[in-house]
Nucleic acid binder design. Structure first.
Lengths: 198, 198
DNA sequence: GCTTGAACTGAACACACGTTCAGATACCAT
DNA sequence: ATGGTATCTGAACGTGTGTTCAGTTCAAGC
């Protein structure tokens, strides 16, 4: 399919994924037709099947790619003591999600449109991400720097809060990325029971 | 359409809405057909049009009904000073949302499937709800009992955190409703900068 | 017992869906 | 120039879509 020298398909493949990402995020997987995606790419519907075996796989690949990017980026964070680690995690999460609002939308909203086997695979990646945060919270509780009655529950609450930023953040709005990052990180730390320096 | 004495349609109407609620929540609006809804009710597809002018209105009515219920219930909360009010709001929000996981799912996920006019109407109701929380936060900041750099942003962050509970809570799980309610309310207060009594 | 009318069926409407595939096209190495 | 191959078209496939409507059913009101 792909050749050594730059051929057409090296261009079209990514364009198909980009168009699918945009359209799925905007209208939802079920509401987008293969013909719409093809039109966005500037091609007939049949040509899409040179780049994906079917529509379901197109969705799955987008979600899997997103989660793998997320986990890869997470792995690059340097180790740190709990309070610094939570602060770092919160800022990382906000930054990463604000950079990819469409992927985030799909990853959280289209889970139910995955076939069971695909769902299981994505769920596993999600749990690995959550486990990273829970490890930080657990360590902080053990050291006595966090006040949390239940780390599992706090993990989910914090991720929901941080991810929520993608629901309202708009480029060029009242607050810049850095400010939003700082405010959310501070709220996350406080929610974990850290009393900030006066 | 409806008669004084109990006739069939007094039964079928609610059953249509209930079936649509269940199916839309599970599979998404776009992925559910009128024939599936009809089958769930035990009727042919054509009969649904005795109870709704079209599929879009069915969705809109479900969402509008949910938001109106939410606002009506909110209005019954007694006035209170900021800290007590935030605690009360958090517990109310959790309780209300845990009682209607399907409506919540639809209200947050199917916004993009609303026609523009319907979307505007639902958005307005949502903003009224958010305004109630922001008023509490604002009052608390004014009194000096909350530490929040930005009440608008905190409003959205807190609602995202609290609503997230519906993503994982399952009846008969490790924690009961009351425990979840208490833990989330405590986290919300701390996130707002309230230092809990030792 | 007859009439009325709401509740519902079953077939049909025009259109859109995901997917397949024979054939046209255009570019590559030889 | 020729053969080969990756790319893409355009039409077709069977199935499903939301919605309409003439006709059937059946219970209540007179």
């Amino acid at each position: 399919m792909a050749r050594k020298t730059g051929s057409h398909s090296d261009i079209t493949g990514p364009r198909v994924r980009a168009a699918a990402l945009r359209l799925f995020a905007r209208h939802g997987y079920a509401a987008v037709s293969m013909r719409q995606i093809a039109a966005e790419v500037g091609v007939q519907a049949g040509a899409l099947y040179l780049y994906t075996p079917d529509k379901q796989t197109l969705l799955f690949d987008l979600m899997q790619g997103h989660m793998q990017e997320l986990l890869a980026a997470l792995a690059h964070l340097p180790p740190a003591p709990p309070v610094a680690a939570l602060n770092q995690f919160a800022r990382f999460h906000i930054r990463f999600h604000l950079d990819r609002p469409e992927s985030v939308f799909i990853a959280y909203m289209e889970l139910r449109n995955l076939e069971p086997a695909n769902f299981t695979a994505i769920e596993a990646l999600r749990r690995r991400y959550e486990a990273a945060l829970e490890a930080i919270l657990h360590a902080g509780v053990a050291e006595g720097v966090f006040t949390l009655p239940d780390t599992k529950l706090a993990t989910l609450a914090l991720i929901a809060m941080l991810t929520g930023v993608t629901n309202w953040y708009r480029e060029g709005g009242r607050l810049g990325r850095d400010e939003v990052e700082a405010i959310y990180a501070a709220m996350a730390l406080r929610a974990a029971g850290v009393i900030p320096p006066a």
